[in-house]
Design a binder for these strands. Sequence first.
DNA 1: TCCTAATCGTTCAGTTCCTGAATTATATGG
DNA 2: CCATATAATTCAGGAACTGAACGATTAGGA
Lengths: 146, 146
Amino acid sequence: MNDVKLTSTLAFRLGTLGAVMTERFSARLAAHGLKPKHAGLLVVLESGTATSQLDIAKLMNVAPSLVVSLADRLEELGAVRRERDPVDRRRQTLALTREGRELLATCAAAAAELDAELTDELGPGETEALRSVLGTLARRHGLPAD
Amino acid sequence: MNDVKLTSTLAFRLGTLGAVMTERFSARLAAHGLKPKHAGLLVVLESGTATSQLDIAKLMNVAPSLVVSLADRLEELGAVRRERDPVDRRRQTLALTREGRELLATCAAAAAELDAELTDELGPGETEALRSVLGTLARRHGLPAD
DNA sequence: TCCTAATCGTTCAGTTCCTGAATTATATGG
DNA sequence: CCATATAATTCAGGAACTGAACGATTAGGA
């Protein structure tokens, strides 16, 4: 019988820490009328990886119908423009507006504050190690990277 | 204007990776009739930090009514025994059974498998660095540690 | 050229997970 | 003892998400 402690497992700790972080992130975004997934959508748009709503849904691992409501909200805030693709008129193309880019920068600033809070009592070496490994994992597992 | 990329932020990456991990964890637990929060409750019980349902709720940052249903399920599986505290008969004391301990070990094994999967392409140094920093963060931020 | 099948966005009903308010049982302190 | 506080429970409801159905558009044969 393998005798591993659940709490000292990477999966468990990433899960718990991740939940804490997205909750804090969510609290900050609320002031701007956004939820974490809105920020996720903005990220996808900025990356240019996908513009049609279906592609975005696949990239975000989310139902297409959810992208609709996320996009509705962002359009409402003027962060995103919806345009029919003239080549294939079934497709809706989402484009970041200037306000959208600003909003994304605001989200990034909020996240940076959380980072500072999180690594408060960490040595600079530890912080850099964490940043580096998380970057590697993000790349290896198909998550949005730089 | 601060020019941080949201995707390269620790908060964002921990959130995303954490979501991926708990989803995978959830998928494995499903085979045993459990959800991640059930595992969380088992962890709390094993730690001995809290036995009354209200204390458990506080520790888990969750509504007391949720603990009721989590405990219901675990009792159903024979993983937990509910006993009225004879000193204060309002309190329900939750105690891990042998089956509960076994179930917890099963969860830990599943998480360990996920760890292996996650760190597949990481060097042993990186893996150890990650484990160490996450341990530190868990301790600093009041999350369950060993 | 039609006609059928596929694709995209959208709507909407339903599921899941969780919270907060009421309820019951018990304890505690003037 | 009585008023008030506390523990567990039940239950209605909210937030977030999914999946099925639909309308509009496109594509690919015969």
